[in-house]
Amino acid sequence: MVMEIHELIQKRQLLEAFASIKLMEDETILERDSEKYSDNPQEFVRKSKDVDLLYNSITNAIQSIVEGTLEDPTLQHTMLTSMVTLIAREEVAHPNTDNASHPGSDLLGRPRKWREKWREAINESARKRVLMAPMASREEATSWLDRHLHFLQEHLRADLLKIKSSVKKCYPEEYQVCDTYVEAFHSAIASHLQELSQGPLDFHELYTLLDWVANTYHRFEQEFMAWSTAQDSPIFVPYLVAYINSFHDLVLAE
């Protein structure tokens, strides 16, 4: 049965896979409660681990689907809507319970927190998308930073437009999917710009970076405020202040 469920997960038939795992989990719990494993506790532990590993496989599938949402040129609406249904069913199936009295029971009946994994996957997706913007070396092109920031802006624009026009439709309002993506991109860009600012930038390059952050990126961000309640990110602002301070220190040093 375990192999059959693995095949369902590989085929992204996640609702069917979840139903089978839940049945397997419920049967194992019933057998435990009837003391079927009193003479063979290792068998109970083995079955519990099978259930846990299968649930983890679904977790990985969810993360893969979310991270691939912006990479796939043809958005798979059915895949995303099924994933949302899956998360909802799991939350109903696994309310918080205390299974500590049974060895190995911490693997059974516990919440899988797939909505949290969904958010983590969006953060990882944004991080990867930001790093995909082409960046030449200073030796290859004197305007390497200008080009990189241009590519970064174009990639960000395309991704956010896709989220607004297509991805948002696949989620219920409670997910606040636009806000979640905007926050994720804020954090990813802030981290990336911080790394750039810590590199060996000359005066012109540092000015280019600060100008892009304060003007181009800020204006670009405002284009999307109509559909996002996220204002200036609390993660982003300290980095911007740090850039300005670094620029001020450099000017004084000159």
Rank of each mutant, 00 (worst) to 15 (best):
3 M>N: 12
3 M>F: 11
7 E>K: 12
7 E>H: 10
8 L>S: 06
9 I>E: 06
10 Q>G: 13
14 L>Y: 06
17 A>D: 09
20 S>M: 05
21 I>G: 05
21 I>E: 03
23 L>I: 05
24 M>N: 01
24 M>A: 01
26 D>V: 07
27 E>G: 03
32 R>M: 13
35 E>S: 10
38 S>T: 13
43 E>D: 14
45 V>I: 13
45 V>H: 02
48 S>N: 01
52 D>R: 00
53 L>E: 13
56 N>Y: 10
58 I>K: 08
59 T>L: 08
63 Q>R: 15
63 Q>E: 15
65 I>D: 14
67 E>N: 07
67 E>Y: 09
69 T>D: 09
70 L>V: 02
71 E>I: 06
76 Q>F: 07
81 T>Y: 11
83 M>F: 09
84 V>D: 08
85 T>H: 09
85 T>G: 00
86 L>S: 05
89 R>C: 01
90 E>W: 00
91 E>D: 01
91 E>P: 03
93 A>C: 00
94 H>C: 01
96 N>F: 07
97 T>F: 00
97 T>S: 02
102 H>F: 13
103 P>H: 04
104 G>D: 04
105 S>M: 00
106 D>L: 02
108 L>A: 04
108 L>F: 03
110 R>D: 05
111 P>Q: 06
112 R>F: 03
112 R>V: 00
115 R>Y: 10
118 W>C: 04
120 E>S: 09
120 E>P: 01
120 E>D: 15
121 A>P: 02
129 R>P: 02
133 A>Y: 05
135 M>T: 04
136 A>D: 13
138 R>F: 12
138 R>V: 08
141 A>Q: 14
142 T>N: 13
144 W>M: 04
147 R>G: 05
148 H>D: 09
152 L>F: 07
152 L>D: 13
159 D>G: 03
165 S>G: 04
167 V>D: 06
169 K>M: 00
169 K>I: 02
172 P>W: 07
173 E>Q: 08
174 E>F: 07
175 Y>W: 15
176 Q>W: 08
176 Q>L: 10
183 E>L: 12
185 F>E: 07
186 H>T: 01
190 A>E: 12
193 L>R: 09
193 L>H: 14
198 Q>R: 13
198 Q>D: 14
199 G>P: 07
199 G>C: 06
199 G>F: 07
199 G>T: 12
201 L>V: 05
202 D>P: 00
203 F>E: 13
205 E>Y: 06
207 Y>L: 14
209 L>A: 10
209 L>I: 11
210 L>N: 15
214 A>C: 13
214 A>P: 05
215 N>A: 02
216 T>Y: 11
218 H>W: 14
218 H>I: 06
220 F>Y: 14
220 F>K: 03
222 Q>M: 13
223 E>F: 10
224 F>D: 05
234 P>G: 11
234 P>C: 04
238 P>V: 04
241 V>Q: 14
245 N>S: 04
246 S>L: 11
248 H>C: 09
249 D>E: 15
251 V>G: 07
252 L>C: 12
